[in-house]
Amino acid sequence: MSEVLVLVDHLDGAVRKPTYELLTIAKRLGEPSAVFIGDGAKASDVVDKVKKYGAEKVYVVDDAQIKGYLVAPKAEALQQLAEKTSASAILIPSTIEGKEIAGRLAIKLGSGLITDAVDVQEGPVTTQSVFAGSYTVTAKVTKGTPIITVKPNSATPEESEGAGTVEEFTAEVSDAAKGAQIVASQPRKASGRPDLNEAAIVVSGGRGTGGDFAPIEEFADALGGAVGASRAAVDSGWIGHAFQVGQTGKTVSPQLYVAAGISGAIQHRAGMQTSKTIVAVNKDEEAPIFELVDFGVVGDLKTVLPAATEAVNQRKG
């Protein structure tokens, strides 16, 4: 069986959940090979994790020489690995960086690229959600080695022991790839809540919060969910852009999405329309968000959410 390369999504050696989803998908297509580009000293820990989800091989690319540069060196490393292994497909996490690596890699390899897949089946045939979630598209790559970026939550990780054979790989990085330098990097502070991209429950606030996100955060904590926001709330400076759900923020597809004080403009709908269950709380009964909901409360989030938080906490005992 031919190798399917999976670029490991990690934060300084800590493997992130989408990696396991990608490995699970890779198993449908061929033999999963994980590619870890990071600190070589942390590789053994990564290997232990990824082999549990079926990685037969793990290519370790020590990034000491390249981590100070943006995107391009990683694309070169993947190109050289793809050529060496004659990989039959390459799966990359659909993050900002992942998509840019994929874009450069596609040109380098002369291969077609599909981004933001929400499902990948044998073929590989991909499924994407487009036009703000109003259409579903299936597609395939017709030239070269299919390169597919996959969104979080696109598969349920399945444990399956792989051999996890380690191979150190030294990439030849050109000077041209070192043009964009990472001058400084400030890791995002951990909130203690689930990651917005990966959370099963998301509670978002908008203009209706008036800038006070406490009711949103407390309700999210009661449900064990992540906190999100509309663009209006982000543009008002009430919460960081990392929390924005919508066309220019994150696209989420949780089991439960709660929109509080959010009118439901197309910009926002694009980011949450494919959620399984949608609930809204809004003072304005004419708000377009109510067209999408499974359950809606016409009322003030500042009274409804705290009362609901208390009720949820009581039920949990």
Binding site: E285, V293, D294, F295, G296, V297, G299, T303, A307
Partner: peptide, 17 residues
């Protein structure tokens, strides 16, 4: 569209829960 309720004296939070 699913069920939409109007909050009156805390009924909204109860229904939501």
């Amino acid at each position: 569209q699913g069920e939409i309720v109007k909050d009156e004296d805390g009924s909204g939070a109860t229904a939501l829960t």
